[in-house]
Computed example of a mutant assay.
Amino acid sequence: MLSKTKRVARSATVALAAAAAFTALMPTSNAFAINEVECRGGENFLKIWSHLDGRSSVDCYANKGRMNFGSWWVDRISTGNNDLIYYDVNGDSVRVNRWTDITFPSRPPKVKDIEIL
């Protein structure tokens, strides 16, 4: 009888230790997987035209998340099937809804971060 009680107690202890380890190793926040992808015709990625210090760039992004945009000046945004928030260097945040194509011909924003919702 005593050995059966010890086995039950040992099993319960092992189960609690495993549960505690599993809980400690799990991430505590959402994992974000925003990434730059190849721009291809016919795809509905977020597409951003930008410039900085005489260089121009056209970049596409996919997946939910937030990332640093390097404080580039943004000339045009085509959101595709993505809702977007861009954060400018002045601390403002601007939401741009999916299926929007917007240009900034006279006063482009200088964007610090982008976030796909």
Rank of each mutant, 00 (worst) to 15 (best):
residue 84 L to I: 02
residue 28 T to M: 10
residue 29 S to D: 10
residue 102 I to Y: 05
residue 14 V to F: 09
residue 44 N to F: 06
residue 98 R to H: 11
residue 21 A to L: 14
residue 46 L to E: 10
residue 75 D to F: 04
residue 49 W to F: 12
residue 22 F to T: 11
residue 18 A to S: 09
residue 13 T to S: 12
residue 81 N to C: 04
residue 11 S to A: 13
residue 68 N to Q: 04
residue 114 I to T: 05
residue 26 M to K: 09
residue 76 R to P: 00
residue 64 K to L: 09
residue 5 T to R: 07
residue 81 N to W: 07
residue 12 A to K: 13
residue 63 N to G: 01
residue 93 S to N: 08
residue 47 K to T: 15
residue 80 G to S: 05
residue 45 F to D: 12
residue 4 K to S: 09
residue 19 A to G: 04
residue 89 V to I: 10
residue 38 E to V: 15
residue 76 R to K: 15
residue 40 R to K: 15
residue 92 D to W: 00
residue 51 H to F: 11
residue 110 K to L: 11
residue 1 M to W: 09
residue 114 I to C: 06
residue 75 D to L: 04
residue 85 I to V: 10
residue 5 T to Y: 11
residue 97 N to C: 08
residue 85 I to M: 03
residue 44 N to D: 15
residue 5 T to W: 10
residue 106 S to A: 11
residue 65 G to P: 02
residue 111 V to N: 01
residue 65 G to H: 03
residue 95 R to I: 05
residue 70 G to T: 03
residue 57 S to H: 12
residue 96 V to T: 06
residue 103 T to I: 03
residue 52 L to M: 13
residue 65 G to K: 02
residue 69 F to T: 00
residue 102 I to T: 12
residue 6 K to H: 04
residue 52 L to K: 15
residue 23 T to N: 08
residue 83 D to R: 02
residue 101 D to V: 14
residue 18 A to M: 10
residue 20 A to Q: 05
residue 84 L to V: 03
residue 27 P to L: 08
residue 50 S to W: 14
residue 89 V to D: 05
residue 58 V to Q: 14
residue 81 N to R: 03
residue 15 A to H: 03
